[in-house]
Design a binder for these strands. Structure first.
Length: 554
RNA sequence: GGACCUGUGGCUUAGCCAGGAUAUAGCGCCGGGCUUCUAACCCGGAUGCCGGGGGUUCGAAUCCCUCCAGGUCCGCCA
């Protein structure tokens, strides 16, 4: 309803003014939509903006009135207000299952996210990547795109060689009940300490790097065992956070299947290539100071070579490729894009996010300085269970635990997604454990309240007679949901959805406070129940697109 | 030193790319509201030279320049 109404008004304005761009935007408190085109026309026509606005409003009023839209000039602003017909139709649309979904698209989309090195568990910095990527993926799916989500497994880097060395030489046993990723981290940290103490060990690491590149079976087996041990733990953490990947792409596969060799060959033929011991690409013409190294002087490949092969493969298999990467990858990401362009391949789009640090400094797996996602989930779940137990002593421990898990995952996901990715943040336990505020539980609670009303009401005949300010404000906001999904996808900014969902909950709570539903009668009761159903459905769809459970009771 | 990102009430934060009408919310603070559909809620109040300075524009939190502060990167690591 929103899209068709917007388009209709835009076209009416264009026809009336003869302008292509009609400066039509949100009207804030003043209107549902407003145009500021009179300012621009004032210059050309040498007439006061208010006079122009009044003229346009008068001209458009009769035809828009037939669509139940009023036009009014207020000074230089042309304000459009939607009437009952819009509100009724918007609520009707919002009753449908899957509301907010957009028409099916043809372009195949691949979103790569998380892709953390398998040398330890995910920490609270990694999950900013995971949550951003997963929310974006959910939005793309809702917007009708065929989608594949990938995790690129760096299974042959120096870190993994260090882990493999640690397993071979340190004789560290796995603790009782220890997750694989935490065990791998312990070995990795200890191995790094050993290297610091004895630099001679480095030769053993280098030997493993060369062996893995040559595909030495025993080395491959040892690396793979370590990586799979770690990846199993990472997958479990991601599953706890409602995050899944369709495919895990192993870096070493691009070496084994000769894909990387092909890319290196093509790079060597570029005019920008420099083959002087190392193979590198001179990107100085594109503003990069440092050369982009592809192959070491000893003939082994560096990460960049495998990454180029992976992205070349992706370019050939998908129409849109999106990588979610931390700010530390900005330079290499740009170098990768630039080099792919030189090769004539479509480079990926990169969605960057800034760092999450601890109050005592940056996180580092190697130094063992991080707060793991598992620890965060455990703490927040325990805190949520306390809260549920206070509020709902009537429920069984199983029911309370299930609610606590949903609340905890929602709180974590929401806390991370609500902040714009370009802002760096400092992790704060106190804040993470507090959900009496702008949070997922607040939105989940509004949804649960709506469910409770609907359950108590039983059956009803849908009606669409809305009268109070709270009813209309809620209905009009519900109507914006498909637009928000479109925006999230177009701008690759899922945090817009978190803002929208919270606003929906705000408006529902205000409606709830002033508009008794079950105690009203006749058309009012049916209309309000219809609106509650629409709000419940919208909140549910919005929450699920954010990867948060829409609880029916809490 | 260079490149990129950030700076909005005491704290956290939306809006900035596509400039417009009194700058968005939350926490905290002050004052109200549960015999009423779940108070993880609602209502009212105080708190802002939108980092500083210059510029463009009828109009700047938003665009440009500059300075200051914080983060990130600049490896034959990934």
């Amino acid at each position: 309803m929103y899209f068709t109404t917007y388009t209709m008004i835009r076209e009416a304005l264009a026809a009336c003014t003869g302008e292509q761009e009609v400066d039509l935007g949100d009207g804030g408190d003043h209107a549902d939509l407003a145009s500021t085109i009179a300012f621009r026309l004032a210059k050309v026509r040498k007439t006061a903006p208010a006079r122009i606005a009044a003229g346009i409003a008068a001209e458009l009023a009769p035809s828009l009135a037939t669509h139940d839209i009023t036009v009014e000039a207020l000074g230089p602003y042309i304000n459009f207000r939607f009437g009952q017909r819009y509100v009724a139709e918007a609520v009707r649309e919002a009753l449908a299952p899957g509301y907010g979904g957009l028409p099916e698209k043809q372009q195949k989309v691949c979103i790569e996210h998380t892709s953390a090195n398998p040398n330890g568990p995910l920490h609270v910095g990694h999950i900013r990547n995971s949550i951003l990527g997963d929310s974006l993926a959910r939005a793309f799916a809702k917007a009708g795109y065929p989608l594949e989500v990938q995790y690129y497994v760096n299974d042959m880097g120096r870190q993994i060689a260090i882990v493999a060395w640690g397993f071979d030489n340190l004789g560290m046993a796995r603790n009782e009940g220890e997750k694989g990723d935490h065990y791998v981290a312990r070995v990795y940290i200890a191995a790094n300490r050993a290297i610091e103490a004895d630099p001679e060990i480095k030769a053993g690491i280098d030997a493993r790097m060369a062996a893995i590149e040559q595909g030495d079976p025993e080395t491959v087996r040892r690396f793979r065992t370590a990586v799979e041990l770690c990846l199993g733990g990472i997958k479990a953490t991601l599953a706890d956070l409602h995050i899944g990947h369709d495919r895990f792409m192993w870096e070493s596969d691009f070496v084994r299947n000769r894909h990387m060799a092909g890319v290196i060959q093509r790079i060597a033929l570029l005019p920008e290539a420099k083959n002087e011991g190392t193979l590198s690409v001179d990107l100085s013409a594109f503003g990069f100071e440092k050369e982009y190294v592809i192959r070491r002087s000893d003939g082994t490949s560096v990460y960049a070579a495998r990454d180029l092969a992976y992205h070349e493969w992706k370019a050939g298999n998908f129409d849109v490729n999106i990588d979610v990467l931390g700010a530390d990858h900005k330079l290499i990401g740009a170098q990768l894009q630039c080099t792919l362009r030189l090769l004539g391949e479509q480079p990926p789009e990169i969605v960057h996010f800034e760092f999450v640090s601890l109050p005592e400094g940056s996180m580092s797996t190697r130094a063992g300085m991080f707060v793991s996602a598992d620890a965060l989930i455990e703490e927040v779940t325990a805190r949520a269970l306390e809260e549920v137990t206070v509020r709902r002593p009537d429920l069984s421990i199983e029911e309370r635990s299930a609610i606590a898990r949903s609340v905890a995952v929602g709180a974590i996901r929401y806390d991370i997604i609500r902040v714009s990715p370009e802002k760096s943040t400092v992790f704060d336990w106190k804040e993470a454990l507090n959900f009496e505020r702008q949070s997922a539980p607040y939105i989940q609670y509004a949804h649960a309240r709506a469910c409770s009303i609907l359950e108590k009401a039983g059956g009803f005949e849908p009606e669409f007679a809305f009268a109070t300010g709270e009813e209309i404000a809620l209905a009009k906001h519900i109507a914006l949901f498909p637009r928000v999904i479109a925006q999230v996808v177009e701008e690759r900014r899922p945090h817009l959805l978190s803002v929208y969902a919270r606003e929906c909950a705000d408006l529902f709570n205000t409606f709830y406070r002033y508009n008794p539903v079950l105690k009203s009668e006749g058309a009012t009761r049916n209309s309000r129940l219809t609106l509650v159903r629409a709000a419940q459905n919208t909140l549910k769809e919005a929450l699920e697109t954010l990867g948060i459970d829409a609880l029916e009771s809490m």
